[in-house]
Amino acid sequence: EPLWIRPDAPSRCTWQLGRPASESPHHHTAPAKSPKILPDILKKIGDTPMVRINKIGKKFGLKCELLAKCEFFNAGGSVKDRISLRMIEDAERDGTLKPGDTIIEPTSGNTGIGLALAAAVRGYRCIIVMPEKMSSEKVDVLRALGAEIVRTPTNARFDSPESHVGVAWRLKNEIPNSHILDQYRNASNPLAHYDTTADEILQQCDGKLDMLVASVGTGGTITGIARKLKEKCPGCRIIGVDPEGSILAEPEELNQTEQTTYEVEGIGYDFIPTVLDRTVVDKWFKSNDEEAFTFARMLIAQEGLLCGGSAGSTVAVAVKAAQELQEGQRCVVILPDSVRNYMTKFLSDRWMLQKGFLKEEDLTEKKPWWWHLRVQELGLSAPLTVLPTITCGHTIEILREKGFDQAPVVDEAGVILGMVTLGNMLSSLLAGKVQPSDQVGKVIYKQFKQIRLTDTLGRLSHILEMDHFALVVHEQIQYHSTGKSSQRQMVFGVVTAIDLLNFVAAQERDQK
């Protein structure tokens, strides 16, 4: 057995438009009618409502009807409940999964919650491996369901041993009777949507819809739904939504950006999952974080739909894509998950301010006199920076000697690579993860907040409520011999709460 199987392995699926269902090699399930009293909570997966979006479509000038398939009504709160249950049931049916076995899954959280929910009911041990950027709410729900959680670096490539995929496979090879159901490759993922989600949409719309818009992560949702719609409703256009920084969209030119990270969760990847059939997507749109969270908040405030950030991405694209539809036509959007997962993220004004998705003037509360002053007023001194090749031991000596707790790590040209902190280095040394002679590049981390000289002290204040420091950066445009230009970030300084307090105190003292 291989040590790991690539999540982007070539698909062996034989589905073709027009091929009889009787030739399918898979076990198919028909939607079942729910009894009045459910035998367990797993029976509350599927049969989610279709809700008309009344205000947002009109606000953006849509002539067509805009409908939302509300997947956050599933038992675990997301569309991923469907595939989690289906993968477990299919693994039980073919004898792969037996009582007492362990389920391991690399996930952005929602599939993990679905699997942990099913594992709690069915009696399996469950280990979820997820990147650090995923919300604390997801972690809390997983723990409450009895799952064990392993976190991995957000910026690790999918084929790196440190990625959530790599760590999951390492655990599988170490733990007896453990299984990775593997949402990236498992046919049960798109089949769950082909058999149930798509049929529900067709039934709820009486077979009449002209466009379907869905955000894409593993691709199982859009693949399964689109294949069924292509068979039953061939005139329906399928629109895929991919965040900026991901590479799922086609044509490839759409993916060209210097951005590699994004805040919206559960969609987009740096590889093409095996289950994603991009041939059934008629057109791709890219979405960005700001519009995703703005539209998610709009869905909550104006439509009462308590959905997550990827739902915002989907609707932001839908109001663009559906401009081509006329009166009497219908566009369906998939709202994948609930706001429950993001209470401390985009639902929080403070978080939105820190990330730059909300401006101070958007909030009406009274601010102190210094709130709208610029960061450049602080008069920061030149920063202490270190090269990635310097040793951890030497870096600790320098920081202690100069009285700093942290320093930016830059390359020879001064471009920011990340940050090192005294606390992080000492804990890594004590844990045996690094040696004093190791290069400081081994303990770089990139989960820090950046701020510009033109940003306000109010925004800085919000950042420092949650973080010990902020890195002050400025952009530099560099022209190359080819005539092309590129933008790079340079370090201007490091600012802490002490710097802000000293500035405010000094100004008030001078005024007296």
Rank of each mutant, 00 (worst) to 15 (best):
I238M: 08
I238F: 09
I239S: 04
G240C: 07
G240I: 00
V241N: 00
V241F: 07
P243Y: 06
P243W: 01
P243A: 03
E244P: 08
E244Y: 09
E244H: 09
I247T: 15
L248E: 04
A249Y: 05
A249K: 04
A249D: 00
E250R: 12
E250A: 14
E250D: 15
E250L: 15
P251S: 09
P251W: 05
E252D: 15
E252T: 14
E252I: 06
N255W: 06
Q256M: 12
T257C: 11
T257H: 05
Q259H: 14
Q259L: 14
Q259D: 11
T261R: 10
Y262G: 05
Y262M: 01
V264Y: 02
V264N: 04
E265M: 03
E265N: 00
E265V: 00
I267R: 00
I267E: 06
G268D: 00
G268T: 00
G268C: 00
G268A: 02
D270N: 02
F271H: 04
F271P: 00
F271L: 03
I272Q: 06
P273G: 06
P273C: 06
T274V: 04
V275M: 11
L276S: 04
L276H: 01
L276I: 07
L276R: 01
L276K: 04
D277R: 03
R278I: 01
R278Q: 05
R278T: 05
T279F: 10
V280F: 12
V280K: 09
V281A: 09
V281Y: 07
D282I: 07
K283Y: 09
W284M: 00
W284L: 00
F285G: 09
K286N: 05
K286D: 00
N288H: 14
N288D: 11
N288L: 14
D289W: 01
D289F: 00
E290Q: 14
E291N: 15
E291R: 15
A292E: 07
A292H: 05
F293D: 00
T294N: 05
T294I: 15
F295D: 02
A296N: 04
R297Y: 00
R297I: 05
L299S: 07
L299C: 05
I300G: 00
I300V: 06
Q302T: 10
Q302Y: 09
E303V: 09
E303H: 06
E303L: 08
G304H: 02
L306N: 03
L306P: 05
C307L: 03
C307I: 07
C307S: 14
G308I: 00
G308T: 00
A311C: 06
A311Y: 05
S313M: 04
S313R: 03
S313N: 08
V315M: 10
A316V: 06
V317P: 08
A318K: 01
V319Q: 08
V319E: 08
A322K: 01
A322C: 08
Q323R: 14
E324V: 15
E324T: 10
L325H: 00
Q326I: 10
E327Y: 08
E327K: 12
E327Q: 10
Q329G: 14
R330H: 14
V332F: 01
V333H: 00
V333N: 01
D337Y: 03
S338F: 04
R340A: 01
Y342M: 01
M343Y: 05
T344P: 03
K345A: 04
L347E: 00
L347F: 07
S348H: 11
D349Y: 07
W351K: 01
W351F: 00
M352L: 13
L353N: 03
Q354T: 10
G356R: 09
K359S: 15
K359W: 09
E360C: 06
E361C: 12
D362V: 12
D362N: 03
D362C: 01
L363P: 15
L363W: 10
P368H: 05
P368E: 10
W369I: 06
W369H: 05
W369C: 07
W370L: 05
W370D: 05
W370I: 06
W371P: 09
H372A: 11
L373H: 09
L373S: 13
R374L: 11
V375I: 13
E377W: 07
G379Q: 10
G379K: 10
S381H: 13
A382N: 11
A382T: 13
A382H: 13
P383Y: 07
T385S: 15
T385P: 10
T385L: 12
T385F: 08
V386I: 15
P388F: 05
T389P: 13
I390M: 13
T391C: 09
H394S: 07
T395Y: 10
T395N: 09
I396E: 08
I396C: 11
E397C: 07
I398R: 07
L399K: 03
R400F: 09
E401H: 15
E401W: 02
K402Q: 14
F404A: 05
D405L: 02
Q406M: 01
Q406I: 08
Q406L: 04
A407D: 03
P408A: 08
P408G: 08
P408E: 00
V409A: 11
V410I: 14
V410S: 11
V410G: 15
A413Q: 15
V415H: 11
I416E: 03
I416M: 13
L417K: 01
V420A: 12
T421G: 02
L422V: 14
L422D: 09
G423A: 07
M425N: 07
L426S: 14
S428G: 12
L429R: 12
L429Y: 10
L429N: 14
G432E: 10
Q435D: 13
Q435H: 15
P436I: 15
P436G: 14
P436S: 11
P436L: 14
S437C: 14
D438K: 11
Q439I: 12
Q439V: 12
V440Q: 00
K442E: 15
I444L: 12
I444S: 15
Y445A: 09
F448S: 11
F448H: 09
K449I: 06
Q450D: 15
Q450S: 14
I451F: 15
I451Y: 08
R452D: 09
R452F: 12
L453S: 05
L453K: 10
L457M: 15
R459S: 06
L460N: 05
H462F: 15
I463W: 02
L464A: 09
L464S: 04
D467N: 14
F469M: 03
A470T: 15
L471F: 12
V472E: 14
V473A: 12
H474Q: 12
Q476F: 14
I477A: 14
I477W: 06
I477K: 02
Q478M: 12
Y479S: 14
T482K: 04
G483N: 02
S485A: 14
S485Y: 13
S486G: 12
S486T: 13
S486P: 05
R488I: 12
Q489N: 13
Q489C: 11
M490W: 11
M490Y: 13
V491P: 10
V491N: 12
G493W: 09
V494Y: 02
V495R: 08
A497C: 08
I498D: 14
I498R: 02
D499P: 01
N502G: 13
F503Y: 07
F503C: 05
F503I: 02
V504Y: 15
V504L: 07
V504H: 09
A505S: 14
A505C: 02
Q507S: 13
Q507H: 15
E508I: 10
E508N: 13
E508M: 12
R509S: 11
R509I: 07
D510S: 10
D510W: 13
Q511H: 13
Q511L: 11
K512R: 15
K512C: 13
